[in-house]
Design a protein around this nucleic acid. Structure first.
Lengths: 163, 163
DNA sequence: TAAAATCCCATAAAATCCCATTGTATCCCG
DNA sequence: CGGGATACAATGGGATTTTATGGGATTTTA
């Protein structure tokens, strides 16, 4: 159950239904449950891309512990104090932890849905330590995204379109 | 039930009614009850921000124990003695412990309400080991608060306004 | 006994559970 | 190897429960 022995990988395109529910792809759930024993995802706005960043609570705790150790080193520095407060706020207040049910679905919180501009479709992308949730349209429109990755998004869209 | 295995996370904006009652958001109550078995919150003025700092009794006990150990180490240092006395005063005399009822509401003590300048609305922000209670307006006006977090406060205000 | 705190009940909206369906991947055995 | 049987994933929709909140009644406190 060591936190970072298991990495998030792969992609999937799932529907967001009228109630705001989305299935977390099972291959991501497997990693979550191997890293800890929660059936829960932590959602945050991605710092660089117009999408959401997601991970498991064990990873969040690990990140927090790291921050704490950093503070103890710089305890005397007054600037460090404010910076610490700010980071803590971003790491915890600006994130939401949502459990998934027995069928693997979360209720996407309205705030996160808006921050990630997620509409009827959610594109899940594994990125190792974390995974991302995109509006497929936004991903295709972003010039920073490699063409090969866009091909994957297009493929997932087609897959769904023809059904 | 280890104290710091569960962290406070997320945000919510709740109403303070005419009697001074506020609901503690359920996701914070869950953490409180997992950390110990009290249905109680400890309130204090935040040391840096114009808001309240809040936590569970188990965390208060833990913090106290930590202070004690620190003191024992520095027993010979007279400065440490004074500092300990001061911190101890703040940690206990300047805080109030209030239980929440079966519907999850506390009666916000008038002194704390004034210290935090909490009006009709209380913004709850998880910050890991503790959580904060803000007047949303004061948060929006504070230059030290990251813009992304203010966005969240604005979102919560909107959410409520349109209903 | 007046003010304040607490309890109790009511409600609307939201979140959660539960069951059903469908498509797809996997298994197993002849 | 074929082809049905099986298991699981994603998803829809109804039923149930929880949450936040208002307001009255009762108890406690000063």
């Amino acid at each position: 159950m060591a936190a970072l022995e298991h990495l998030f990988q792969g992609s999937a395109l799932n529907a967001v239904d009228g109630k705001g529910r989305v299935s977390i792809p099972s291959f991501l759930r497997t990693v979550i449950e191997r890293r800890g024993d929660a059936r829960t995802v932590v959602l945050a706005k991605h710092e660089a891309f117009p999408c959401l960043s997601a991970y498991d609570p064990a990873y969040a705790a690990l990140k927090h512990a790291k921050l704490e150790r950093l503070l103890e080193k710089e305890e005397t520095n007054p600037d460090a104090q404010l910076e610490y407060q700010q980071r803590n706020l971003m790491a915890f207040a600006a994130t939401e932890e949502v459990p998934y049910d027995s069928s693997g679905r979360i209720l996407m919180p309205p705030m996160m849905r808006r921050k990630g501009q997620i509409g009827e479709l959610a594109l899940f992308l594994g990125t190792g330590e974390t995974f991302q949730i995109w509006s497929p349209k936004l991903l295709l429109d972003d010039p920073r995204i490699p063409e090969d990755l866009k091909d994957i998004a297009r493929f997932r869209l087609e897959e769904r379109g023809q059904s």
